[in-house]
Design a protein around this nucleic acid. Sequence first.
DNA 1: CGAGAATGTAACATTAACGATTACATTAAA
DNA 2: TTTAATGTAATCGTTAATGTTACATTCTCG
Lengths: 140, 140
Amino acid sequence: MAVHVLAVLAYKEGDPVTSSSLASSVNTNPVIIRRLLLSLKRARLIDTRKGVGAGSRLTRSPQRINLAEIYRAVESHETFKSPANKPNAGCPVGNCIRKTLDKVFESAENAMEQDLRKTTLADVVQKAREACLGATKRAS
Amino acid sequence: MAVHVLAVLAYKEGDPVTSSSLASSVNTNPVIIRRLLLSLKRARLIDTRKGVGAGSRLTRSPQRINLAEIYRAVESHETFKSPANKPNAGCPVGNCIRKTLDKVFESAENAMEQDLRKTTLADVVQKAREACLGATKRAS
DNA sequence: CGAGAATGTAACATTAACGATTACATTAAA
DNA sequence: TTTAATGTAATCGTTAATGTTACATTCTCG
Protein backbone atom coordinates (compact mmCIF):
# COMPACT_ATOMS: atom_id res chain seq x y z
CA MET A 1 0.00 0.00 0.00
CA ALA A 2 2.84 2.35 0.81
CA VAL A 3 4.15 1.90 -2.67
CA HIS A 4 0.79 2.64 -4.09
CA VAL A 5 0.58 5.90 -2.21
CA LEU A 6 4.03 6.97 -3.24
CA ALA A 7 3.29 6.03 -6.80
CA VAL A 8 0.36 8.39 -6.81
CA LEU A 9 2.56 11.10 -5.41
CA ALA A 10 5.09 10.42 -8.12
CA TYR A 11 2.36 10.54 -10.67
CA LYS A 12 1.27 13.96 -9.51
CA GLU A 13 4.88 15.15 -9.78
CA GLY A 14 5.29 17.71 -7.08
CA ASP A 15 1.73 18.84 -6.65
CA PRO A 16 0.70 18.44 -3.04
CA VAL A 17 -1.93 15.74 -2.61
CA THR A 18 -4.26 15.51 0.37
CA SER A 19 -4.69 12.41 2.44
CA SER A 20 -8.34 12.35 1.45
CA SER A 21 -7.64 12.01 -2.23
CA LEU A 22 -4.97 9.42 -1.57
CA ALA A 23 -7.46 7.54 0.55
CA SER A 24 -10.05 7.51 -2.15
CA SER A 25 -7.46 6.26 -4.59
CA VAL A 26 -6.58 3.31 -2.39
CA ASN A 27 -10.19 2.95 -1.30
CA THR A 28 -9.54 3.37 2.35
CA ASN A 29 -9.78 5.88 5.15
CA PRO A 30 -7.83 9.15 5.32
CA VAL A 31 -6.58 8.29 8.78
CA ILE A 32 -4.93 5.13 7.57
CA ILE A 33 -3.16 7.18 4.95
CA ARG A 34 -2.09 9.78 7.43
CA ARG A 35 -0.52 7.16 9.66
CA LEU A 36 1.34 5.84 6.67
CA LEU A 37 2.44 9.32 5.69
CA LEU A 38 3.90 9.80 9.13
CA SER A 39 6.20 6.83 8.64
CA LEU A 40 7.19 8.11 5.25
CA LYS A 41 7.86 11.53 6.63
CA ARG A 42 10.03 10.09 9.38
CA ALA A 43 12.06 8.43 6.65
CA ARG A 44 12.29 11.77 4.85
CA LEU A 45 10.68 10.40 1.76
CA ILE A 46 7.89 12.93 1.71
CA ASP A 47 7.15 16.39 2.89
CA THR A 48 3.81 17.40 4.37
CA ARG A 49 2.29 20.78 4.85
CA LYS A 50 -0.68 21.58 6.97
CA GLY A 51 -3.46 24.02 6.44
CA VAL A 52 -5.67 24.98 3.57
CA GLY A 53 -4.60 23.65 0.19
CA ALA A 54 -1.93 21.56 1.84
CA GLY A 55 -0.90 17.96 1.32
CA SER A 56 2.13 15.80 0.73
CA ARG A 57 4.72 15.46 -1.97
CA LEU A 58 7.98 13.65 -2.57
CA THR A 59 11.20 15.14 -1.30
CA ARG A 60 13.16 13.66 -4.19
CA SER A 61 12.53 12.72 -7.75
CA PRO A 62 11.04 9.25 -8.20
CA GLN A 63 14.19 8.10 -9.95
CA ARG A 64 16.03 8.57 -6.70
CA ILE A 65 13.69 6.60 -4.46
CA ASN A 66 14.01 2.84 -4.46
CA LEU A 67 11.68 0.27 -3.04
CA ALA A 68 14.11 -0.83 -0.36
CA GLU A 69 13.85 2.60 1.23
CA ILE A 70 10.11 2.36 1.21
CA TYR A 71 10.24 -1.09 2.70
CA ARG A 72 12.49 0.05 5.50
CA ALA A 73 10.33 3.06 6.18
CA VAL A 74 7.17 1.07 6.49
CA GLU A 75 7.85 -2.48 7.55
CA SER A 76 8.36 -3.37 11.14
CA HIS A 77 11.37 -5.56 10.35
CA GLU A 78 9.74 -8.54 11.91
CA THR A 79 9.17 -10.64 8.85
CA PHE A 80 10.83 -13.43 10.75
CA LYS A 81 10.14 -12.66 14.32
CA SER A 82 11.27 -15.36 16.65
CA PRO A 83 8.26 -16.21 18.75
CA ALA A 84 8.24 -14.55 22.12
CA ASN A 85 8.00 -18.04 23.48
CA LYS A 86 11.06 -18.70 25.58
CA PRO A 87 12.33 -22.15 24.76
CA ASN A 88 12.46 -24.85 27.35
CA ALA A 89 15.61 -24.54 29.39
CA GLY A 90 16.05 -28.28 29.34
CA CYS A 91 16.27 -28.44 25.58
CA PRO A 92 19.86 -28.48 24.40
CA VAL A 93 18.91 -26.93 21.09
CA GLY A 94 16.40 -24.33 22.12
CA ASN A 95 18.68 -22.35 24.33
CA CYS A 96 21.26 -21.53 21.73
CA ILE A 97 19.49 -21.55 18.43
CA ARG A 98 17.88 -18.16 18.70
CA LYS A 99 20.86 -15.99 17.97
CA THR A 100 22.00 -18.23 15.18
CA LEU A 101 18.67 -17.98 13.43
CA ASP A 102 18.50 -14.25 13.93
CA LYS A 103 21.73 -13.88 12.01
CA VAL A 104 20.52 -16.05 9.17
CA PHE A 105 17.27 -14.16 8.90
CA GLU A 106 18.97 -10.83 8.96
CA SER A 107 21.09 -11.94 6.06
CA ALA A 108 18.02 -13.12 4.18
CA GLU A 109 16.27 -9.84 4.74
CA ASN A 110 19.33 -8.01 3.49
CA ALA A 111 19.29 -10.07 0.34
CA MET A 112 15.71 -9.09 -0.18
CA GLU A 113 16.43 -5.43 0.33
CA GLN A 114 19.29 -5.62 -2.10
CA ASP A 115 16.87 -6.87 -4.67
CA LEU A 116 14.29 -4.21 -3.87
CA ARG A 117 16.95 -1.58 -4.23
CA LYS A 118 17.14 -2.34 -7.93
CA THR A 119 13.68 -0.94 -8.56
CA THR A 120 12.92 2.75 -8.27
CA LEU A 121 9.61 4.40 -7.80
CA ALA A 122 9.95 5.82 -11.30
CA ASP A 123 10.30 2.29 -12.66
CA VAL A 124 7.11 1.25 -10.96
CA VAL A 125 5.16 4.20 -12.30
CA GLN A 126 6.43 3.65 -15.79
CA LYS A 127 5.69 -0.06 -15.82
CA ALA A 128 2.26 0.56 -14.41
CA ARG A 129 1.64 3.03 -17.21
CA GLU A 130 2.68 0.47 -19.80
CA ALA A 131 0.46 -2.15 -18.23
CA CYS A 132 -2.38 0.30 -18.35
CA LEU A 133 -1.89 1.04 -22.01
CA GLY A 134 -1.81 -2.64 -22.79
CA ALA A 135 -5.06 -3.15 -20.96
CA THR A 136 -6.70 -0.23 -22.73
CA LYS A 137 -5.58 -1.47 -26.11
CA ARG A 138 -6.84 -4.95 -25.35
CA ALA A 139 -10.19 -3.58 -24.28
CA SER A 140 -10.67 -1.44 -27.36
CA MET B 1 9.62 -22.25 14.92
CA ALA B 2 9.70 -24.74 12.11
CA VAL B 3 13.45 -24.48 12.05
CA HIS B 4 13.59 -25.07 15.74
CA VAL B 5 11.61 -28.26 15.43
CA LEU B 6 13.70 -29.54 12.58
CA ALA B 7 16.84 -28.66 14.44
CA VAL B 8 15.75 -30.84 17.29
CA LEU B 9 15.06 -33.64 14.88
CA ALA B 10 18.49 -33.17 13.40
CA TYR B 11 19.97 -33.21 16.85
CA LYS B 12 18.37 -36.52 17.61
CA GLU B 13 19.78 -37.93 14.38
CA GLY B 14 17.28 -40.46 13.17
CA ASP B 15 15.60 -41.35 16.43
CA PRO B 16 11.87 -40.77 16.15
CA VAL B 17 10.69 -37.92 18.36
CA THR B 18 7.13 -37.48 19.51
CA SER B 19 5.16 -34.31 19.06
CA SER B 20 4.83 -34.08 22.83
CA SER B 21 8.54 -33.86 23.41
CA LEU B 22 8.94 -31.41 20.56
CA ALA B 23 6.18 -29.36 22.07
CA SER B 24 7.83 -29.23 25.43
CA SER B 25 11.06 -28.20 23.77
CA VAL B 26 9.42 -25.27 22.05
CA ASN B 27 7.19 -24.66 25.05
CA THR B 28 3.94 -25.02 23.21
CA ASN B 29 1.13 -27.42 22.59
CA PRO B 30 1.52 -30.81 20.87
CA VAL B 31 -1.25 -29.96 18.44
CA ILE B 32 0.59 -26.92 17.17
CA ILE B 33 3.56 -29.12 16.50
CA ARG B 34 1.46 -31.71 14.78
CA ARG B 35 0.01 -29.10 12.46
CA LEU B 36 3.52 -27.98 11.65
CA LEU B 37 4.66 -31.54 11.11
CA LEU B 38 1.90 -32.00 8.58
CA SER B 39 3.29 -29.19 6.46
CA LEU B 40 6.75 -30.62 6.74
CA LYS B 41 5.52 -34.03 5.81
CA ARG B 42 3.75 -32.63 2.77
CA ALA B 43 7.09 -31.17 1.73
CA ARG B 44 8.67 -34.57 2.28
CA LEU B 45 11.12 -33.22 4.79
CA ILE B 46 10.08 -35.57 7.53
CA ASP B 47 8.57 -38.95 8.01
CA THR B 48 6.07 -39.70 10.76
CA ARG B 49 4.96 -43.00 12.14
CA LYS B 50 1.93 -43.61 14.24
CA GLY B 51 1.42 -45.90 17.15
CA VAL B 52 3.38 -46.84 20.21
CA GLY B 53 6.95 -45.61 20.27
CA ALA B 54 6.35 -43.63 17.12
CA GLY B 55 7.27 -40.08 16.17
CA SER B 56 8.94 -38.12 13.42
CA ARG B 57 12.38 -38.02 11.87
CA LEU B 58 14.11 -36.40 8.94
CA THR B 59 13.94 -38.04 5.54
CA ARG B 60 17.38 -36.75 4.61
CA SER B 61 20.57 -35.91 6.37
CA PRO B 62 20.64 -32.36 7.79
CA GLN B 63 23.42 -31.43 5.39
CA ARG B 64 20.97 -31.92 2.56
CA ILE B 65 18.17 -29.75 3.91
CA ASN B 66 18.45 -26.01 3.45
CA LEU B 67 16.43 -23.29 5.04
CA ALA B 68 14.79 -22.23 1.81
CA GLU B 69 13.06 -25.59 1.63
CA ILE B 70 11.80 -25.16 5.15
CA TYR B 71 10.61 -21.66 4.36
CA ARG B 72 8.70 -22.85 1.34
CA ALA B 73 7.19 -25.72 3.25
CA VAL B 74 5.91 -23.55 6.03
CA GLU B 75 5.32 -20.01 4.89
CA SER B 76 2.15 -19.04 3.14
CA HIS B 77 3.99 -17.01 0.49
CA GLU B 78 2.11 -13.90 1.39
CA THR B 79 4.89 -11.88 2.88
CA PHE B 80 3.82 -9.08 0.62
CA LYS B 81 0.20 -9.69 0.06
CA SER B 82 -1.45 -6.97 -1.89
CA PRO B 83 -4.40 -5.84 0.15
CA ALA B 84 -7.67 -7.39 -0.97
CA ASN B 85 -8.84 -3.82 -1.38
CA LYS B 86 -9.75 -3.21 -4.96
CA PRO B 87 -8.33 0.15 -5.96
CA ASN B 88 -10.55 2.98 -7.04
CA ALA B 89 -11.39 2.62 -10.69
CA GLY B 90 -10.99 6.33 -11.20
CA CYS B 91 -7.36 6.33 -10.10
CA PRO B 92 -5.02 6.15 -13.07
CA VAL B 93 -2.34 4.50 -10.98
CA GLY B 94 -4.33 2.06 -8.89
CA ASN B 95 -5.72 0.05 -11.74
CA CYS B 96 -2.45 -1.01 -13.22
CA ILE B 97 0.04 -1.07 -10.42
CA ARG B 98 -0.95 -4.36 -8.90
CA LYS B 99 0.64 -6.71 -11.37
CA THR B 100 3.78 -4.63 -11.55
CA LEU B 101 4.27 -4.79 -7.82
CA ASP B 102 3.54 -8.49 -7.69
CA LYS B 103 6.42 -9.10 -10.07
CA VAL B 104 8.79 -6.98 -8.02
CA PHE B 105 7.85 -8.72 -4.82
CA GLU B 106 8.17 -12.13 -6.33
CA SER B 107 11.66 -11.24 -7.37
CA ALA B 108 12.47 -10.00 -3.89
CA GLU B 109 11.18 -13.16 -2.33
CA ASN B 110 13.29 -15.20 -4.70
CA ALA B 111 16.35 -13.25 -3.66
CA MET B 112 15.57 -14.06 -0.08
CA GLU B 113 15.14 -17.73 -0.78
CA GLN B 114 18.41 -17.79 -2.67
CA ASP B 115 20.07 -16.48 0.45
CA LEU B 116 18.33 -18.98 2.70
CA ARG B 117 19.42 -21.76 0.41
CA LYS B 118 22.99 -21.13 1.48
CA THR B 119 22.36 -22.37 5.00
CA THR B 120 21.66 -25.99 5.77
CA LEU B 121 20.01 -27.44 8.80
CA ALA B 122 23.34 -28.96 9.72
CA ASP B 123 24.91 -25.50 9.71
CA VAL B 124 22.28 -24.24 12.08
CA VAL B 125 22.74 -27.10 14.50
CA GLN B 126 26.48 -26.75 14.47
CA LYS B 127 26.44 -23.01 15.02
CA ALA B 128 23.91 -23.39 17.79
CA ARG B 129 26.23 -25.90 19.43
CA GLU B 130 29.13 -23.50 19.22
CA ALA B 131 27.03 -20.70 20.66
CA CYS B 132 26.06 -22.99 23.48
CA LEU B 133 29.64 -23.89 24.28
CA GLY B 134 30.59 -20.25 24.30
CA ALA B 135 27.79 -19.48 26.72
CA THR B 136 28.77 -22.37 28.95
CA LYS B 137 32.38 -21.32 29.00
CA ARG B 138 31.43 -17.74 29.78
CA ALA B 139 29.24 -18.90 32.62
CA SER B 140 31.88 -21.15 34.18
C1' DC C 1 -5.77 -60.18 19.94
C1' DG C 2 -6.14 -56.39 23.00
C1' DA C 3 -4.12 -52.35 25.35
C1' DG C 4 -1.74 -48.37 25.23
C1' DA C 5 0.62 -44.70 22.88
C1' DA C 6 0.91 -41.91 19.47
C1' DT C 7 -0.90 -39.27 15.29
C1' DG C 8 -4.64 -36.82 12.49
C1' DT C 9 -8.17 -33.67 12.82
C1' DA C 10 -12.14 -31.04 14.19
C1' DA C 11 -14.21 -27.55 17.09
C1' DC C 12 -13.76 -23.74 19.76
C1' DA C 13 -11.50 -20.01 22.81
C1' DT C 14 -8.00 -16.56 23.10
C1' DT C 15 -4.96 -13.29 21.51
C1' DA C 16 -2.61 -9.90 18.51
C1' DA C 17 -2.38 -7.17 14.56
C1' DC C 18 -4.43 -4.39 11.23
C1' DG C 19 -7.78 -1.71 9.14
C1' DA C 20 -11.77 1.24 9.69
C1' DT C 21 -14.33 4.75 11.96
C1' DT C 22 -15.27 8.73 14.71
C1' DA C 23 -13.83 12.61 17.00
C1' DC C 24 -11.25 16.56 18.07
C1' DA C 25 -7.25 19.73 18.79
C1' DT C 26 -3.88 22.06 15.94
C1' DT C 27 -1.95 24.35 12.18
C1' DA C 28 -1.47 27.42 8.36
C1' DA C 29 -3.05 29.64 4.08
C1' DA C 30 -6.38 32.66 1.94
C1' DT D 1 -10.86 34.93 11.03
C1' DT D 2 -12.39 31.38 8.51
C1' DT D 3 -11.59 27.08 6.69
C1' DA D 4 -9.29 23.09 5.02
C1' DA D 5 -6.13 20.19 6.08
C1' DT D 6 -2.97 17.41 9.29
C1' DG D 7 -1.80 14.93 13.83
C1' DT D 8 -3.52 11.89 17.07
C1' DA D 9 -6.25 9.35 20.36
C1' DA D 10 -10.03 6.03 21.42
C1' DT D 11 -12.72 2.47 19.96
C1' DC D 12 -14.55 -1.37 17.11
C1' DG D 13 -14.61 -5.22 13.78
C1' DT D 14 -12.12 -8.66 11.25
C1' DT D 15 -8.82 -11.81 10.37
C1' DA D 16 -5.00 -14.90 11.29
C1' DA D 17 -2.28 -17.39 14.57
C1' DT D 18 -1.95 -19.75 18.64
C1' DG D 19 -3.67 -22.47 22.32
C1' DT D 20 -6.88 -25.92 24.20
C1' DT D 21 -9.82 -29.80 24.49
C1' DA D 22 -11.61 -33.77 22.62
C1' DC D 23 -11.87 -37.84 20.04
C1' DA D 24 -11.38 -41.25 16.25
C1' DT D 25 -7.68 -43.74 14.12
C1' DT D 26 -3.63 -46.27 13.65
C1' DC D 27 0.21 -48.89 14.87
C1' DT D 28 3.36 -51.64 17.95
C1' DC D 29 4.23 -54.56 21.65
C1' DG D 30 3.24 -57.82 25.05
